[in-house]
Amino acid sequence: MKQEVICVICPRGCRLTVDPENDYKVTGNFCAKGVPYGKAELINPTRVVTSTVKIDGEKITRCPVKTDQAIPKKEIKNIMQEINQVNLNAPVKAGDIVIQNILNTDANLVVTRDID
């Protein structure tokens, strides 16, 4: 079954058609960047997850975090559950690893802001 995907590489937002039965052939793309994007969106769509975790900061009680690389889209829900369990102790620095290799995705959950 062919599927429609909106390309997000640039604001133009091409409506790509991807055909899984024909080696994930991409049509509707204005530029070449649409081809790998369309293919990946069907085979293994990935996203960077950003959220917050609890922290005992002096001025703030939530610390922003992100996965340091895109993780499979289907893992977002499970990763959020992991994130919601975290309790950090201040101080932290941007880049500090909160959870290494979160849910075996190869991505680390890292702090994105210095908090005292």
């Binding site: 909106i6 390309c7 997000v8 604001p11 133009r12 937002g13 996203r47 889209k73 977002i76």
Partner: peptide, 11 residues
């Protein structure tokens, strides 16, 4: 941005 439409609404 389209990117936000896809990743924030459509997802």
């Amino acid at each position: 941005l389209n990117r936000n439409y896809v990743q924030c609404l459509k997802d």
